[in-house]
Design a protein around this nucleic acid. Structure first.
Lengths: 180, 180
DNA sequence: CCGCTTCTATAAGCAGCTGATATAACTGAC
DNA sequence: GTCAGTTATATCAGCTGCTTATAGAAGCGG
């Protein structure tokens, strides 16, 4: 149920999917992928939201919190305001978030000797461990789901992994050179 | 916490890994997919969280709100408690959510003539329009991203769409036969 | 020193979730 | 019919996590 995703599509013109998709929202139609493809992707992302919510263990960690911790793990220490900009929250919001992380021992504040105003945030060993634990939990749940899928479906997902990864990297971008 | 309705918890094998990302994809393996594959997927999902946050326009709509509205659009009217179970929030939470939707004219309550206790929720024309608008906005942003990707990457994403869709459907499950 | 900018912290408020509980409607025994 | 038990929704108090507005401390040019 839920929408026939098994149409032909491919790369040509598909069903009109509503109206003038992506008409005014930037990026000319000629430049990006097919309009219909993009709308389909947007729809799939919407549906996948539900999956994400289910996969998120009740650690009491918000999406932003996890994303911040993962970022600190992946890309190293950031100054606080930089972190706020990268994760798309306000600076006071990030101050609170970091305070929470610090209270739970998952990250810690550090001063910048070169600039007394700056607070540099870095992940702790406990924070790294927390991420790993969470990742393994999620993997466990995913494992159960994937087991029910035919092999070709699993292969399709695997193949798209690196692409999704590249997409994610493109969006988050480099932390504007600093925190070195 | 949570409803406790969908506590699958997979095989839970998946030991440490974390670094070894070798092995072929799609091998049977009783647990369902290679361990490393699953961990890679879990990691990609983590990273994709950032993408989701960025793609979500500042409509002031929570993930749950959007998912609920999309569900009502896809699968038709649901009773309130059914909606709560499907989206993984408590019944009081869904009562509030629906009240919010109703106040903004995106959904409406309806009585069930066969059962006076029941409240059936259905999406309004304005609600459908809201979803479409949001989807188009998202599509616009995605379009810009996809334009930078090589064609083969776009194809990989397109191919994985239906699989992701199937995954989402598997997790949320049918609304237990109603919404007639 | 002073004024201006930059970076973080604090305060007040709102959204959105939770558990506990109240209210109303259906069901079955009698 | 009435009573008790179950089911479906609403309401209440409380917490988390975000927001805007503002305060305070540190750097920089005069």
């Amino acid at each position: 149920m839920a929408g026939g995703a098994a149409d032909d599509s491919g790369t040509g013109a598909v069903d009109d999917t509503g109206t003038d998709a992506a008409g005014d929202a930037g990026s000319g139609a000629g430049g990006g992928g097919t309009d219909a493809d993009v709308v389909r992707l947007a729809t799939a992302v919407e549906r996948f939201t539900r999956v994400l919510r289910r996969l998120t263990a009740p650690d009491g960690m918000s999406l932003t919190t996890v994303a911040t911790l993962v970022r600190l793990d992946d890309l190293g220490p950031h100054r606080l305001s930089e972190l706020a900009a990268a994760e798309g929250v306000t600076q006071p919001g990030m101050t609170q978030l970091v305070s929470r992380l610090e209270r739970e021992g998952l990250a810690q504040r550090r001063g910048d000797p070169a600039d007394g105003r700056v607070v540099v945030v870095e992940i702790t060993a406990a924070g790294r461990e927390s991420i790993l634990r969470r990742r393994r939990e999620r993997a466990g749940k995913l494992s159960g789901l994937l087991a029910d899928l035919p092999a070709e479906d699993r292969a399709a997902i695997t193949r798209s992994l690196e692409v999704l990864d590249r997409l994610a990297g493109r969006l988050s971008g480099p932390p504007a050179g600093s925190a070195g």
